[in-house]
């Protein structure tokens, strides 16, 4: 177990260097046009101002030198400053709690609705509930967020103001409830289909038959034997989902004015604010890797047959 974790951590370092290098290259080695002009918008930038800013952001140093500076600064948790002069580390830590709150609401919605409905549908496979949930979830999954989120906002934020239409900064749980539910709904269908397939398969497994013939009550058979063994694919799915939600739900965050990671990324990308993009992505890579490691470790908890070498 310990050796496994150490090996995974070492792999993470390699993945981290690889991904930051790619992002750094993409953001700084051209392609994004001229960051200084982007910052100025449609006005001309004087040669003097340009030279000052280039010096300040080391735009003229050779590429590898800049990447090396970046990596060494990173080890000291210094992510540099944005083109507007704010520390990138502050920008990220300010927004991370909000994104985390939004992600947990979304995941909770996915788990509560997806797994519950999936278990019921799995037990009563082919029944009315199974068919209805299949149709409903397929409809929801068929509507893209760009449509679902504004409709949700219009109906429950403006027409019948049950929820706030937009979120302030810092956001409260209440303000994040509606966007969280909408975000979670999108993965309910997947979670439900996964649970349903896994449950109905396990119901026919040998160990369930054995348990039943031993006279164990049905409640315990399903709750302990079937559910626990059915959770592995769902935990995988939710782990990946949580990782990507940490990256910020760009569309949902923009529609509900949530000051989270997604909005930060969107704004910096459109401004060509490379230091912020690279910094944010670096942090996200770490978060994603850790989330995946935790998921992998959870497998052993759910299924004792899995051993880590």
């Amino acid at each position: 177990m310990f050796r496994y974790i150490v090996r995974r951590l070492l792999q993470m370092i390699l993945v981290f260097i690889g991904t930051t290098f790619i992002v750094f290259t993409l953001m700084f080695a051209g392609g994004e046009g001229d960051p200084i002009q982007n910052l100025a918008g449609e006005r001309p930038v004087s040669a003097i101002q340009r030279a000052q800013l280039e010096q300040q952001f080391h735009f003229n140093d050779p590429f590898l030198t800049r990447y090396w500076h970046y990596l060494t600064d990173l080890l000291n948790l210094d992510l540099g400053t944005s083109l507007t002069g704010r520390p990138v580390w502050d920008l990220i830590t300010e927004r991370f709690p909000t994104t985390l709150m939004l992600a947990s609401i979304a995941i909770l919605v996915t788990i509560v609705f997806g797994i519950t409905a999936g278990v019921i549908a799995g037990i009563r496979r082919g029944g009315i509930f199974d068919n209805i949930t299949l149709v409903v979830t397929l409809i929801i999954i068929g509507i893209p967020t760009v449509v679902l989120a504004p409709i949700g906002q219009l109906l429950f934020g403006i027409k019948w103001p049950i929820f706030p239409a937009t979120a302030n900064n810092p956001a409260t749980w209440y303000e994040l409830l509606l966007p969280g539910i909408i975000l979670g709904m999108l993965s309910v269908a997947t979670a439900m289909r996964l649970t349903r397939a896994s449950v109905s398969e396990n119901l026919r497994a040998d160990f369930v038959r054995t348990a039943r013939s031993k006279g164990i009550p049905r409640r315990r058979v399903i709750g302990v034997h079937v559910l626990r063994n059915s959770l592995i694919p769902i935990v995988t799915f939710i782990g990946v989902e949580l990782g990507s939600l940490m990256g910020g739900a760009i569309i949902t965050e923009r529609i509900f004015n949530i000051t989270g990671i997604g909005n930060l990324l969107y704004k910096s990308l459109s401004l060509g604010d490379a230091p912020v993009v690279v910094g944010t992505v670096s942090v996200l890579v770490v978060v994603f890797l850790i989330a995946n490691l935790i998921v992998d470790l959870l497998y052993a908890v759910l299924d004792p047959r899995i051993r880590y070498e």
Binding site: Q153, G157, A165, T166, N168, E253, F256, N257, I258
Partner: peptide
């Protein structure tokens, strides 16, 4: 001065009288 991340959200808040 309320700072918005995008103008669509700003407009939604105006409609909600916020």
């Amino acid at each position: 001065f309320k700072i918005y991340q995008n103008d669509a959200a700003e407009y939604a808040d105006l409609q909600a009288n916020n």
